[in-house]
Computed example of a mutant assay.
Amino acid sequence: MSSSAKDFATVEQDANLESPLRRVAYEAGMMLGLEATRDEQGYHRRRLTRQQYWLHGAGTLAGMAVSIDPDAAEDPDTDMTVRVLVGPGFGIDGLGREVLVHEPYCVNLGEWLAAQGETALHDGFDAGESRLWLRVSVRYQDCPVAAQPVLARKLNMSTDPVQPSRIADGVLLEIQPELPPAGEPGYRPWQAHGPLADAPEGLTDAEQATLAAAEAESEAAGRLMNLHARLLHALDDGVSPQTVADRLHESARLLLARIAIETTSLSHIVVNPSRISVNNLVRPFLVTPGQLAHLAR
């Protein structure tokens, strides 16, 4: 299985949020094989990712700041070598997996733009504003390491067969041309699922009365009860994301920043810090009890 196929298999498994998890029932004298050890690992791993997906959501906890280097230039019309940098940090991606960027990463922006071509960049070009918009995102990705020899599965193989003996936690940083969303998006407590309904649906008379009583008590109590009422039927279409297979990777991506490059044409983009702006605050952030306690002082 290729690395891309293995990556898709991991994403597909992590996006399955409705299948009950199974742990291995160890008994004396029971013969256990490779499937049992994988099930044992998968049970604990997926319990953690599901908890993080449902209870915490996707977002940055700290770091992973996107910047450009250099960040200024004397002549705005000079084509320069500009690098896009992503600093160290920690967060949770769109499927509840931890993402740890343990060291800075960078890419040459001019070389990246040249490698894309005009057709690919068109998805992020706003001709009216004369801007090219890029989205920087991150998600978890398996990283097979420590290859070791294994028994051959086919006869007369030209090379000695090896398989990775460990799967390290890795990250995939991506830059994609994409226009910013128009308007204010609806509230999405879970990134791989659709937004909540704007108003509660399907409430009984008793539930309507409870909601009305909370709204009469105070504005805060009414807003909280309204949110709970909207969450009642949030998963009526299914617990797993209603996403086609080729969009699963999109559900997993965690937005880090949006980059705007001033340009009137995609055929000649002047890469210059004076023409580039980076907005890190469009990303979702994780809010911890410690943060709330600090703000309440």
Score class of each variant (00 low, 15 high):
residue 1 M to H: 08
residue 2 S to Q: 06
residue 4 S to M: 07
residue 5 A to F: 09
residue 8 F to W: 12
residue 10 T to L: 09
residue 12 E to K: 15
residue 13 Q to N: 09
residue 13 Q to I: 03
residue 14 D to H: 14
residue 15 A to Q: 15
residue 17 L to K: 04
residue 17 L to Q: 12
residue 19 S to G: 02
residue 20 P to G: 11
residue 20 P to K: 05
residue 21 L to M: 10
residue 21 L to S: 02
residue 22 R to T: 07
residue 23 R to C: 01
residue 30 M to Y: 07
residue 32 L to S: 15
residue 32 L to C: 15
residue 36 A to C: 10
residue 36 A to R: 13
residue 39 D to W: 02
residue 40 E to G: 15
residue 43 Y to Q: 11
residue 48 L to V: 02
residue 49 T to S: 15
residue 51 Q to K: 06
residue 53 Y to H: 15
residue 53 Y to M: 12
residue 55 L to G: 15
residue 55 L to T: 15
residue 55 L to C: 13
residue 56 H to N: 10
residue 57 G to P: 02
residue 58 A to R: 11
residue 60 T to G: 01
residue 60 T to N: 08
residue 61 L to A: 08
residue 62 A to R: 07
residue 62 A to P: 03
residue 62 A to G: 01
residue 63 G to W: 08
residue 64 M to W: 01
residue 64 M to K: 12
residue 66 V to H: 07
residue 67 S to N: 13
residue 68 I to F: 09
residue 71 D to H: 10
residue 73 A to I: 01
residue 76 P to E: 00
residue 77 D to L: 02
residue 79 D to Q: 12
residue 79 D to M: 03
residue 81 T to C: 12
residue 84 V to T: 04
residue 89 G to P: 09
residue 89 G to V: 02
residue 95 L to Y: 08
residue 97 R to I: 04
residue 97 R to C: 07
residue 99 V to C: 08
residue 102 H to A: 04
residue 103 E to N: 05
residue 105 Y to I: 00
residue 106 C to E: 10
residue 107 V to L: 13
residue 108 N to E: 11
residue 111 E to F: 02
residue 111 E to Y: 07
residue 113 L to C: 14
residue 115 A to S: 15
residue 120 A to F: 01
residue 121 L to H: 14
residue 123 D to K: 15
residue 127 A to Y: 10
residue 127 A to N: 10
residue 129 E to N: 13
residue 131 R to M: 09
residue 132 L to Q: 10
residue 133 W to I: 02
residue 139 R to W: 00
residue 141 Q to I: 00
residue 141 Q to C: 01
residue 142 D to R: 11
residue 143 C to L: 14
residue 147 A to F: 08
residue 147 A to N: 10
residue 148 Q to N: 12
residue 150 V to C: 06
residue 150 V to W: 04
residue 153 R to T: 00
residue 156 N to G: 05
residue 158 S to P: 01
residue 160 D to L: 12
residue 162 V to M: 06
residue 165 S to E: 02
residue 165 S to Q: 03
residue 170 G to R: 11
residue 170 G to Q: 08
residue 172 L to P: 06
residue 182 A to V: 06
residue 182 A to W: 01
residue 185 P to L: 01
residue 186 G to C: 07
residue 186 G to Y: 05
residue 191 Q to M: 07
residue 196 L to Q: 11
residue 198 D to R: 13
residue 200 P to D: 14
residue 200 P to G: 05
residue 201 E to L: 11
residue 202 G to H: 06
residue 202 G to I: 01
residue 205 D to H: 11
residue 206 A to P: 03
residue 206 A to D: 10
residue 210 T to E: 14
residue 211 L to D: 11
residue 211 L to M: 05
residue 214 A to L: 05
residue 218 S to L: 05
residue 219 E to G: 05
residue 219 E to P: 04
residue 222 G to R: 09
residue 222 G to D: 11
residue 223 R to H: 01
residue 225 M to E: 11
residue 225 M to S: 09
residue 226 N to Q: 14
residue 233 H to P: 15
residue 235 L to D: 03
residue 235 L to T: 04
residue 237 D to G: 08
residue 238 G to A: 00
residue 239 V to K: 06
residue 240 S to C: 01
residue 242 Q to S: 09
residue 243 T to Y: 04
residue 245 A to S: 13
residue 246 D to E: 13
residue 246 D to Q: 11
residue 247 R to Y: 04
residue 257 A to F: 00
residue 261 I to T: 03
residue 261 I to Q: 13
residue 263 T to N: 08
residue 267 S to I: 00
residue 275 R to M: 08
residue 283 R to W: 01
residue 284 P to Y: 02
residue 285 F to S: 14
residue 286 L to R: 15
residue 289 P to A: 15
residue 292 L to Y: 07
residue 295 L to T: 11
residue 296 A to F: 08
